[in-house]
Design a protein around this nucleic acid. Structure first.
Lengths: 363, 363
DNA sequence: CTGAAAGCGCTTACAG
DNA sequence: CTGAAAGCGCTTACAG
């Protein structure tokens, strides 16, 4: 270690625009560049005195690490890709926020892509991402993503964890909610209240969550000795509009349902609105339950009973799984499926028929 | 240009794990590395025949560009930072989605940071971002960001565009909505309906939008010869809970308001719920208007009258401004302030007193 | 524990 | 329009 000279002053005065590099730090600190590199990377193989001296010089000179250069040799970009299918969906936004925080705490920065449910846009983003040598990928696949797309990521040797949704048959880690169980629990809740005609709203064939939810719905119905009525199974996307528009035809049936299982809270919000429009009071005349929970559910009218997943927990678990996968790419694939919790609010009650019997009030 | 040899085959067979580099392409195509580089960067200074030949080799060998290496010499990382104050807010999510799409179309990828309204987290993210040599920064500053933080970005010489919100006194480009005008328009709408006691809900002193909105509110009130009543100006954050909780004390006043101007739709949603809870029918007994619009507003109960800004337009404009700023860092600072549009739904009506007079119905 | 030097995969002048 | 070579700012073996 050399004693500080006037070099520093000279550097500052004569070349203010020139970037300060690791070499400058080494020269100023009187050590080799390799030593500075080790200090920067928290290597234990450097003496404490040297470390703190180098750190001082780094601070004094206002040195900024260049990750682009570092990654060139080391293969650690500290960058992770996040491909989200629809950032505007509140669940996705919440999970993305959680992922960002968790990954940053683990020392990674996120490159974000939002494909708005478009498979080609998703593909274009992933293609671009490749050029940045991301160390891993968190993927909430767009509806209808073919499994070949996910297989290709495997060929690229980028560790991937699917979050919230998954592509069937794609052998990657996954963290999400158990929608089958959630739907079964929701349906059992309605059955226990006495409902005999329960509709399932939002069976999008491209959505895994919807298909699994439907399976859980059928299971619970079967347990109660009920068979589903084809009129009461409504296809459609997870949007407010779809929920809103579904209500009129549904309640024009000869025997309309007394309760609705809505795949997505957005559908449920639309349905609540559609019911009010038809003069049907949600919660009293028709029960509504959603298979996911969002902040809005607590303060809509009436407050929406829903199956809640801990989205922050899902986000943190996915981040942890990805960082494990990065260090051990060949470990067995893991699926983490979180159980939902029934959050009872005011949108579900006994069916009118049952209440009629109870209160002996004429129709 | 050399005719293709068996080199390619050999490469594929003997070194399948080795990364294919620009050098490999040059060798295989029989040109210099500089030429390949020019092809990759769409330089016009390369003959068409050479270009297409090189492009073929690139495709055949499955070459993947390494931006980290490229950026080392060129200073073009094609990376842009996005620091969002609160991704869970629907407006922010929508703008972020729009920014992502627009920047990707311009050939940039986004590094995302969500600070959840925490200034220290925002600062930590920006500090990290520096190491990646982002070409620019889109910033929705956290409430309470001191202008020194933004000034520091200037010292770092990273072009920044503030979006939706801005830090007062920070000399950067800005794209957002005219909340002063929006609040004035909203207030005039209520005044025109006959309201005399209008409350302003959500005056967060740290929020520029809230402060500007309040200024517009006062302007419109003054035009009508009204002075504001201190009881009718409610501080508080932009959350559902704040809106919900504000209703009871407000309507316990000797002379409660007949209409509410809510700074944020979240506040308005909470307020609608709080009014219902108190047996006050929103839209009939108390009018509610919000100074921002989101999808939920159309389908809540009652549908919420709101001032709408075109968020996609704001996102695209911010992206365009940033890309201009990147090429011309010394151009004069630009502020793009978009005008709102009044979206009339069902949450505003004439005040009860006026209706009483009209219908001559006793109280 | 530290130093000197090669090398990561590109781009960029500089000659031709 | 193309080639040969230096260089961007780090990390990594390899000696000491």
């Amino acid at each position: 270690m050399r004693a500080p000279t006037t070099d520093r002053l000279r550097t500052v005065i004569h070349a203010p625009a020139k970037r300060i590099t690791l070499k400058d730090i080494a020269r100023e600190a009187g050590v080799a560049t390799g030593t500075v590199s080790m200090v920067l990377n928290d290597s234990p193989r450097v003496a404490d005195a040297t470390r703190s001296h180098v750190q001082h010089v780094i601070r004094d000179l206002g040195y900024v690490y260049d990750r682009g250069a570092g990654q060139l040799r080391s293969k650690h970009s500290h960058l992770v890709g996040v491909a989200v299918c629809n950032l505007v969906n509140p669940c996705m936004a919440e999970v993305t926020a959680s992922l960002q925080q968790a990954m940053q705490d683990l020392g990674h920065l996120l490159i974000l892509g939002n494909c708005a449910e478009s498979v080609p846009r998703q593909q274009r983003f992933l293609e671009k991402l490749r050029e940045y040598k991301v160390e891993g990928l968190l993927l909430t696949p767009a509806a209808g993503t073919p499994k070949t797309h996910v297989a290709r990521l495997r060929d690229w040797r980028v560790p991937v964890v699917q979050v919230l949704r998954y592509v069937p048959g794609a052998p990657t880690d996954f963290v999400g909610g158990d929608h089958r169980l959630g739907a079964a629990m929701a349906t059992r809740h309605l059955l226990a209240l006495g409902h005999q005609r329960i509709a399932f709203v939002g069976l999008d064939p491209l959505s895994i969550a919807a298909r699994e939810g439907f399976a859980g719905f059928l299971t619970a119905l079967a347990e109660a000795g009920q068979t589903p009525d084809a009129d009461l199974v409504l296809p459609g996307p997870a949007t407010r509009e779809a929920g809103y528009l579904a209500m009129a035809p549904l309640h024009a049936l000869a025997r309309p349902p007394t309760a609705l299982v809505c795949v997505d809270p957005l559908i449920a919000f639309g349905a609540l609105r559609g019911l009010v429009q038809l003069g049907i009071e949600p919660g009293r005349d028709c029960s509504v339950i959603a298979l996911d929970d969002v902040a809005e559910a607590a303060l809509c009218h009436p407050p929406l009973t829903a199956m809640a997943f801990d989205l922050d927990c899902i986000g943190r678990a996915a981040s942890r799984l990805l960082s494990e996968r990065i260090v051990a790419p060949d470990h067995a694939v893991e699926h983490l499926v979180l159980q939902p919790r029934l959050v009872v609010r005011s949108s579900c009650g006994k069916p009118r028929a049952v209440r009629r019997l109870n209160t002996a009030r004429p129709r």
